[in-house]
Amino acid sequence: MNSFELARPTTLAEAAQMLAEKPAETAALAGGQDLLALLKDDVLAPSRLVNLKGLPGLGSIEVDRQGALVLGALVSLDAVASSPLVQKGWAVVAAAAAAAATPQIRNIGTVGGNLCQQPRCWYYRAAELHCARKGGEACLAVVGDHSLHSIFGEVGCLAPNMSALANPGTCLGGSLRLHGPQGARTVSLVDFYAPLKQSLATATALRPGEFVTHLVLPAATGWATAHEEVRARQSSDWPLAMATAALRLTGGNVTAARLTLGALAPLPWVADAEVAVLQGKRPTLALCEQAAAVVVGKAAPLPLNEYKVTITRHLVRRVLARAAGLGEG
């Protein structure tokens, strides 16, 4: 592990300035559940860590005047999972947080760290290997073992986005408040991850010196939601696939449908267009199955992750059925 300096800012402005000085050699530190492992494994070797944990105003769970949920970046996953406020109004977010990692990691891992975690990929995480995500020529998973990798989205890197919060957050139309040397701004979660499509070097919309201060989720009233994950192991593990569905039902008919998939694409995979087949219809299991087939029609699996297509089809059918009140599907 590289030696590093630990900087401890006490104001947002100070943090932004410290992060901006040598952005290529600096990393923000929150709970450290992802970052410290990357340092120990020599995957990242920043010369400075900026500890965000001393910053004021990032530790609370609140509902603002518009009824939106505002989660501070330093709120722990466990606090999100066990908050009655979140459980009541944004149940899928609480469910996703509760399913992530382990009790110990959920006690320490934060909202900001969860959203900004680095890719889970055994090629990316091997210090000696120089994969596309690290500036190398090729994504090694393509010719190697991609059994845990993406089936959607072509960005030149198969490592899927694993963030438990990004998935329901995106589905519910969430956004992030960022703070940087130029002050604060807000970006939607969709835009936050979109830069990956342009360049593997810029995984998120964070500019030099910027960091996440809050995750904001609009009031979900009127939406019927469901979230599910499939895991090879029931704890201490990332999902093989996750899906969040949100349906607006009027007079028994679907008037709006949203679906986001996680662990299946390099960024949260928005499949709203595909589930539009539900639009204006009374949901049935057959219709949910049909929508699921349309969703996975977009998949481009490789030989070892083809199974994820079947998993996804079932998962999508289930979350749509559950959201529509059709039982477990």
């Binding site: 055994w122 091997a126 290997l129 090694l140 010719v143 190697g144 073992d145 090879a232 192991r233 029931q234 704890s235 201490s236 593990d237």
Partner: peptide
């Protein structure tokens, strides 16, 4: 224990990717 077909390297040399069952399993 999984090995990379191209390079012969061990792909899961840690207790995250080499899964041992937990009490939930």
């Amino acid at each position: 224990m999984l090995y990379d077909p191209q390079t012969g390297r061990n792909l899961n040399p840690d207790l995250l990717d080499y899964r041992v069952p937990t009490s939930l399993d």
